[in-house]
Nucleic acid binder design. Sequence first.
DNA 1: ATCAAATTAGTAATGATTATTCATAAGGAT
DNA 2: ATCCTTATGAATAATCATTACTAATTTGAT
Lengths: 136, 136
Amino acid sequence: MERIQRMTRQKKIILDILRSVKTHPTAEWIYQEARQQIPGLSLGTVYRNLNLLRDNGEIMELNYGSSQSHFDGTAANHYHFQCRECGGVYDLDLPLIKNIETKASGINGHQIDGHRLEFYGICEACLDRRRFEEND
Amino acid sequence: MERIQRMTRQKKIILDILRSVKTHPTAEWIYQEARQQIPGLSLGTVYRNLNLLRDNGEIMELNYGSSQSHFDGTAANHYHFQCRECGGVYDLDLPLIKNIETKASGINGHQIDGHRLEFYGICEACLDRRRFEEND
DNA sequence: ATCAAATTAGTAATGATTATTCATAAGGAT
DNA sequence: ATCCTTATGAATAATCATTACTAATTTGAT
């Protein structure tokens, strides 16, 4: 027996914000943005709605490599890059690796139904800032 | 100037435990194991030593967002599988994908120096348990 | 418009991890 | 071996992201 979900103003605004940005912000960042439209919004509401949207398969939660989770308005699998310096998460337009799950299944007894690939390094913006700072 | 580190009894036991298991346990699990050898050991000591060992490049920390980190006695990059049901983390003996970082670098301005590939699904043990439970 | 159920804001609680404290133990120069 | 410096230990408190709780409000089907 599944619960009926309502599209509240809060949930809609949260989803709109997430769909409108190219980056993958944290709950806290989304909270600060949404408060410009709903000043009395509470952070708990942001977390609750993000979890609902994730459970519905409407958004993706990216939760490794740093303390806070990042959220991605696109639900289909794709790959990401995270900056070791600023923690920012960016999309990486690399095609999905085909058959890798089948290949991985073949060598053990686990049932594999998903994979995730993340890259790490220094992002373009942090590289630029470094170059600027060393020219003093 | 780098600090000199001492190989204390606690640090050695923690490292030995981590090297002796095939799984990738949490700090809490290691704590419980190590207390059988050092009953008065504190959890803080386990965390501090795990962080030191990670910073030294002797072990790897696998963190999955807000839940507990898992630790891996092997420092070199390799791929993992995490069970959606029990949360257990296992090695996956799949060869490293060559040149993927170079390929990923080519399509953007980030400086990429690492990658991480994770698989998800239901582990062998949980599959077995399910089969057992449906035969009632 | 009515009304039960779902959702909210606000706050308290949780849980993993880190920092602090201070007594003890280890390393190195003499 | 002695002394001095510094790391380590255990215990506890603090932190931070996230979740749970509760009374009041809002939603959407009727």
